[in-house]
Simulated scan of single mutants.
Amino acid sequence: MSPQVSHPVFDGHNDVLLRLRRSGQPDPAKAFLEGEKTGHIDLPRAREGGLAGGLCAIYIPSPTMAKDANGDFVPPAEADALAETLAMARLLFDIERRSDGGLKICRSAADIRRAIETGAFASVFHIEGAEAIGTDLDALHVLHAAGLRTLGPVWSRPNIFAYGVPFRFPSTPDIGPGLSDAGKELVRACNELKIMVDQSHMNEAGFWDIAAISNAPLVASHSNAHALCPHSRNVTDRQLDAIKDTGGLIGINFGVLFLRNDGIKDPGTGIDPLLDHIAYVADRIGIDHVALGSDFDGTTIPAAMGDCRGLKLIVDGLVERGFDAAALDKVTHQNWIRVLEQTWGG
């Protein structure tokens, strides 16, 4: 981390592990550590841009982009998903081992604070879509022992635990059924293990099922305000209010598809719509409940940002809108650390 960065960013979601896994690089860990010319994140660019760390997702794409009779993406088989999950987890562990202290896998809020203070990239082992986990939940317990600390039960497709909200515009997130019995057991097990349950990609019925079961703050790691962009992936005002009531947060997604009010995937979109979502959530439920959830390496972001080195544009834009230093600290990193500490304990 550059010592000139006054507001380090701890980010709620990135897909750098999948990008590295699919890159064809002979040594993807080395590529991340030494820097690349593609994608949104590597260690040198993170240091330059003030990206202090974040939730590093393990997401397993559908085997093909084909859809079932209901128009939903078909999830990978459990065995295939587990194999890919282990491969990406190994990649993350390999990066840490070879980073000479440049990246730390964090298992506590104290670990995150220490990493930021020492200039290490504070990485949290996250799973997006629980297809690698069976109903016996054996894999959940093993993955937790290996460092898993946050989990989204679904991506935008159904699995044995819940119904992931499909990508639709314009649409509410009220599409499909809620948690299955297995999904309810998964949430209870995550609460017991102190694993954060991520609501992003969850449909509305599933959101309220989790709200009824979970004893932890409600979190949507990379979603936006439905009132500004009526995409099915975004969060309604009622859901935002529930997030506030539990002391949770929403991490604002940089994807232009989830920012614009017309649903157009235009990389020429400027920074203002992103700032609008931050300001809207801060006004609606308070500055303590909004953070960043970029979706770097997993979505189309405003071209003006380029990659994680463009984070300064967000900070500068918020300053222009009257956000003071204390508010900037909360949005850029403190809110995430607070909620993770409250969820994980200690």
Rank of each mutant, 00 (worst) to 15 (best):
Q4F: 14
G152P: 12
R309E: 05
G39D: 00
A29D: 01
L340I: 10
T64F: 07
V319H: 05
L91P: 00
D245Y: 00
H289Q: 05
S200C: 14
F161I: 02
S294Q: 03
F254M: 15
I301T: 13
L51E: 05
P170G: 13
H201P: 06
L86H: 05
A77W: 11
F93D: 13
R338T: 15
I58S: 00
D11W: 07
I127D: 01
H201T: 08
K312W: 10
A52N: 08
H226W: 09
I301N: 03
C229G: 06
A31L: 05
N335Y: 09
V339C: 06
R98I: 10
G251H: 00
T246M: 04
R260K: 13
R21N: 11
V197T: 15
L43C: 03
L82P: 06
L179H: 04
A325L: 07
D94I: 11
D42S: 14
G178F: 06
I195Y: 03
F169D: 10
A325S: 09
D283P: 02
N261P: 15
I314Y: 06
N224T: 13
I243S: 11
H333N: 15
D111L: 04
R97D: 14
I195N: 10
T246V: 08
A325D: 07
L33Y: 10
G310A: 10
G129S: 04
K194P: 08
K244R: 15
D245I: 06
I285F: 04
D174E: 13
A304F: 07
T236R: 07
G134F: 01
F258H: 00
A162V: 12
A216W: 04
L51T: 08
